[in-house]
Design a protein around this nucleic acid. Structure first.
Lengths: 188, 188
DNA sequence: ACCTGAACACCGTTCAAGT
DNA sequence: ACCTGAACACCGTTCAAGT
């Protein structure tokens, strides 16, 4: 990548992080280009689709979570590992308002720029769920895709401003349903 | 209402039902007016906001569900009553793709045209939940607003095309968590 | 190679002008 | 009273023209 191209790419990503944080996943791409002092065509050259831009915003976090999960599999109890992953997974998918729908759609759309990240989340969750089920701490009538859907639904809940105060409680309700037993006690 | 106005109103509503069914809650209002052979200003006169239009589309069903719930309170077991209401409630809120977010936002926005319908759903659900809790068949650590949020989250799940095949299963998972069955006969 | 911005086809919303 | 559609300020997306 040429030096000036890299500069534009970085600037676009940095501006996009702010704009998408403020306006959500359907923020104006024109606005991003404008604030980055870059032609509209330049944005489209670097990020051919909205998904490509969102993907670039999420990649670091998704990769980090995937890496963390590998460690969790070895160092933690299956239940605690899954719970930790659930928390991180929900946190990432609702980091930017409105990405949840995009992520859900991308799970089955191999053309989507978000597809790889989705599959990574899905597969990691599936593995941790399998372990928890084998250990007898997770209900066995759901699979990895069900778990992914519950994560997405929870992320959607966190996206709703009017539910901000009870989102953590609803997380406990749903995660407690996946991992029955004593209350999940996620508060510190 | 003048006769010609009523004709336009009815035509708009009928066209809107088709267009919103096809394109979801963020369908083009211009498109609705065009297909109804009505000026754009006429649409805005009858439905000053998008919420007002959606509200007109949902009103009949919401009222029907509220009326049905009154009957359920008397004729059914508290558990079955709540379960029936949950099913109906989810069905209504995902009848048109994407209304779930609007409904959730309208719960706390008394200016929204959807506010009354939201409150009706919320309050009916709360009453049925209270009864079920009093009868000892529903968990007692959630309130009516939590229930409303779970209904909305489920409706969101039903809205996702990629989850169509497992939405019913996820409904069972979550409703089973609200109304625990025999498998939760365990020490607390 | 890469960047730019005009051009096109859409929106939502308002409001003067008509009947 | 009610209806109309132009007008305004926005979009997303493409692509010829520039460096």
């Amino acid at each position: 990548m040429r030096a000036d191209a890299k500069k534009n790419y970085d600037r676009l990503l940095s501006v996009a992080r702010d704009v998408v944080t403020e306006h959500g996943a359907d923020a104006s791409l024109r606005d991003v280009a404008r604030k980055a002092d870059v032609g509209l065509g330049t944005l489209y050259r670097h990020f051919p689709t909205r998904e490509a831009l969102i993907e670039a915003l999420l990649r670091t976090e998704v990769d980090g979570l995937t890496a963390q999960a590998a460690g969790l599999e070895e160092s933690s109890e299956p239940k605690e590992a899954l719970l930790t992953w659930l928390r991180g997974s929900v946190a990432i998918t609702h980091e930017y308002r409105g990405v949840t729908g995009l992520l859900m759609a991308a799970l089955e759309d191999s053309e989507s720029a978000l597809h790889a990240s989705c599959v990574a989340l899905h597969d990691t969750g599936t593995r941790l769920l399998d372990h928890a089920q084998a250990a007898g701490v997770a209900r066995t009538d759901i699979d990895g895709t069900d778990l992914f859907a519950l994560v997405a639904a929870l992320a959607w809940v966190y996206d709703q401003p009017s539910l901000a105060l009870r989102a953590d409680h609803l997380f406990d309700v749903i995660s407690g349903s996946v991992l029955p037993g004593q209350e999940t006690a996620r508060s510190a």
